[in-house]
Amino acid sequence: MIPAAFDYYRPKDVEGVIALLQEHGDDARVLAGGHSLIPMMKLRMAEVPHLIDLQDIAALKGITIDQDTITIGAMVSQHELINHDGLSAAAPILREAALQIADPQVRYMGTVGGNIANGDPGNDMPGLMQCLDAQINLLGPDGSRTVAARDYYEAAYMTDREDDEILISVVFTAPVGGFAYEKQKRKIGDYATAAAAVQIAKVDGKVASASIAMTNLSDVPVWSQGAADELAGSVCETATLKAAVAAMLGDIDPTEDNRGPVAFKRHVAGIILTRAITRAWDRA
């Protein structure tokens, strides 16, 4: 668990980062909190001859809440998500989810941008961002562009981001209604066996709209429109929950690993989603 040698850079602005990425191409990677990348380097699963630390770039920091538009800079740590009062009020699901990521030590270092950019199906932020319909702001040599989180993930560790682009921030509209982030894991510091992000807006005692995304149940996060559609117009009674779970099960594709076989994961996914919807509905 000793990484190969690498050159270390610490630019002061995003332009400096882009220039380095262009110069070194495939051989360069950006470093945010390092809590996904550095373990990979130590295992020599990632060879990064040129490591560009984003820590000194002020433009990537900070959480802004402007009316109902929330912008989170890429370098905001998971710890900051938990402790930001305005954010906890405007989008409480972020706090609930972030509290279930790893442990305090990891959360002090790990960033929102790194978690979203990483492309690991185990990361919790991608599914959450899909649930919130967040827009991801990228900057590259040709300027900036925006991609919907729901379109961003292609396969495990493969995203829409080009090698010479960096993630600047995520933007989403403050959600309304009830929410829940439900996650089953084996222990503290573990990725999800199954996790569900649910937002439910209630009008006239019925579900007006819902959004549902599942984590670590496929090689990408799974936003399940089918499951959300089942809830629309209902009062989340048992039959509806079952229909939503059935729709979700049609969208996920878990694989067997040390957390358990496929049948178990599918069953747990259904239970976790049921609990998440129930909690979100109670809060709606």
């Binding site: 089953q184 084996r186 066996t193 957390r259 358990g260 076989p261 049948a263 178990f264 069953h267 747990v268």
Partner: peptide
């Protein structure tokens, strides 16, 4: 007795 094995026990006993 990790989660999936406990679940498997329950499953084998027809508790799901």
């Amino acid at each position: 007795h990790d989660h999936w094995r406990i679940w498997q026990t329950a499953n084998d006993l027809g508790l799901h």
